[in-house]
Simulated assay, not measured.
Amino acid sequence: MIPSLPGFGFSGPTRSRGWDTYRIATVWAELMRRLGYARYGAAGNDWGAHIAPEIGRAAPEAVVGVHVTQIFSDVDLAEFDRTSPEERSAVEEHEWFRRHMDAYGYLQTQQPQSLAHALTDSPVGLLGWHNLIYRGALDADFVLTNVMIHWLTGTVASSMRIYYENGRSRRPSEPTTVPLGLAQFRDDIHAIRRFAERDHANIVSWNVYDAGGHLAAHQEPDLLVGDLRTFFTGLKQ
């Protein structure tokens, strides 16, 4: 099952407040229960990588494991190991992204409705805004299809509000406990395992690939599918 996020695409626009990643995870866990799934795995990218571990937190007795392509953890600059090339590189990449690529994140976290009025009135403006984040080997059809789904479903404004809602959420203090697997791709946000393990107590798979980027399902589908299969197969042992 591949649900679309509330407020995104085919789920249609949300009309109430509070749709952060924790609420979405709880709702999806309830959806799976009502559909009759007693045991299942969760996988996600981008916002899905925030939500999938929370599904495991919401329904640990049902979720056999969680697979993600990013692990978003707060990095304590006072604690990271400056002698580690991997940690130093990851911190530098985070800082570069914050300074050069995260304008959309700041604006949508702080003032999503201001921008929403403009973009719901301009398909060209919406295309330009989406292209702030599309990097790497992405063909025109992929980009136009994603933008068109937002446009035709009327979810331009509601899809922005997840940033606002999550920016005001209180993150759970305890780590997740269900088995977690990471498939990290070359041109994507790089996690630091030491910090990731503070948020996730049961990381059982951590694979790094020298290809692909933030949209690995489109860019490197074979690598991603292989990692998913290996991860969930391993949980059966």
Rank of each mutant, 00 (worst) to 15 (best):
Y163W: 10
E165I: 07
I192W: 06
I149F: 01
S173L: 12
F195Q: 05
P175L: 15
L152A: 10
F195I: 07
L182Q: 01
S159T: 07
I192D: 03
S158H: 01
M160H: 10
E165M: 06
H200I: 11
V156D: 09
W151A: 09
E174I: 07
A191K: 02
H150G: 07
T153I: 12
N166K: 06
G181H: 05
E197M: 12
S158C: 06
A191V: 05
A196P: 01
P179Q: 03
I162F: 11
R171I: 12
G154M: 01
A157C: 04
R170D: 12
I162V: 14
T155H: 04
R186T: 04
D199R: 13
A191M: 08
T176F: 03
D187V: 07
R198G: 01
D199F: 05
E197H: 08
G181P: 05
M160E: 01
L180Y: 04
H190V: 08
I189C: 04
V178F: 06
R193K: 14
T155S: 04
R198K: 13
R186E: 15
D199N: 11
N166D: 13
A183F: 10
N166L: 09
P179G: 03
F195M: 06
R168G: 01
F185R: 06
S169E: 09
V156C: 08
A191N: 01
V156S: 07
F195S: 04
A157S: 14
R198I: 01
I189R: 10
L152T: 14
N202F: 12
A196E: 01
A183Y: 08
T177Y: 02
R171L: 12
R171F: 05
I149E: 13
R168H: 13
R168L: 08
A201Y: 04
E197I: 11
H190M: 06
R198Q: 13
A183P: 02
P172H: 06
Y164P: 02
G154A: 04
P172E: 11
I149D: 11
F185P: 03
A201L: 07
P179K: 05
L180G: 03
H150I: 03
R186Y: 13
F185C: 09
Y163V: 05
I162E: 06
R193L: 12
P175E: 14
P179W: 03
Y164F: 15
T153S: 15
P175D: 11
I149V: 15
Q184T: 00
L180Q: 06
H200A: 12
G181S: 02
R194H: 00
